[in-house]
Simulated assay, not measured.
Amino acid sequence: MKIPNKLFTKNTILIFIICILILVSGGYLTYKKLSDSNTSTIENTTTDNDNSNDSNTSISNDDANNSLSNNSEQEKKLPEKNINLVNENIGVPVLYYHSVQQTEDNEVTISPQKLRNELRYIKDSGYTTITMRELQDHLLNNSPIPEKSIVITFDDGYMNNYTNAFPILKDLGMKATIFCITFKLDGQYYLSEHAIKEMSNYGIDIESHTAGHPDLTTMTYEEQLSEFKESKETLEAITGKPVITVAYPYGNYNADSMKAAKDAGFSLGFTTKLGLADRDDNPFSLDRIYINSNYTMDTFKNLLSNTKK
């Protein structure tokens, strides 16, 4: 039987179209699979690289931490200055200065540069500055102190002790004591409460030079006791620390002064008599070494070396 050409043509075209669709669908599915595979590979590679970077960063940080740790350990292992402690009654030099400013218009006013030169000489000569508490423990409780101990003091409590002397003491890493008059803590001529507090917090001893700087020998016992107590209470309220020593104004004192100082709660009292502070002294009449701003460096050196107890 003869097949009609029209039917053959329609079936052939339909089959051809179906085959084309199958081929196109298959190609698309194959392309999508390959594309997804490549994307996954790229993401994995990126993740691996990121992990590698994180690992390297971690190693770098660990190295840095180890380096800091090693540096810290090296600093801890740096040799410390060997200081010999002694407990013999050899006497301690207690120097006393006053005002520190550029214009040396009188013998109690020393320039900052001259003060620095003298303190530098002390430091370079192997002296160790000690606190009033350390001196007290040595004199009264037989506690050992560095072999070449010295005490640096400033009388009156001028504001320039804060502006000019304090930076030098910090720079040289030295301890010191300021004997303060307390009747006018104005921050101009005399120290301010803020300056006292800051220096005390740093480690500078703030001690008493009475309230109004009177001649104690002209006063009764009760008047001297009141003078001492007022000064002591004022300074302790500012610093929050015990005030344990007093320097007598002008170096003038008597038996009532020593009794009043003890009764006011002080442990030590300082005069202006030349000598070293030692255990043979009455603790309320300790010697000191006056530093005149007119002294040459040679005079200063000789005074420091040759003063005896």
Rank of each mutant, 00 (worst) to 15 (best):
F16L: 15
E104I: 07
I178H: 00
I244S: 10
K197G: 04
A165K: 04
M132C: 08
T217L: 07
S99V: 06
N106P: 00
Q113D: 15
N89H: 00
A195T: 04
N164V: 06
I83G: 08
N142D: 15
R116S: 11
S125M: 05
S257F: 04
L21E: 11
T271M: 09
I22W: 05
T296D: 11
N84A: 12
I178W: 01
R279P: 05
T163K: 10
L274R: 14
K262M: 08
V108M: 09
T163S: 15
L29I: 14
L235M: 09
I152R: 05
E43C: 06
P146E: 04
Y253T: 01
L7A: 14
P283M: 10
L34C: 11
T239Q: 02
Y189V: 13
Y253S: 03
N56W: 04
I238R: 00
A255S: 13
A255Y: 08
G269F: 02
V243Y: 00
P4Q: 09
L78W: 04
S208Q: 01
G275K: 02
K81L: 15
G240A: 11
N82L: 14
N201P: 00
P283N: 03
N89D: 09
T271I: 05
G240L: 08
A64C: 11
K301A: 01
P79C: 11
V151F: 10
T12F: 13
S52Y: 07
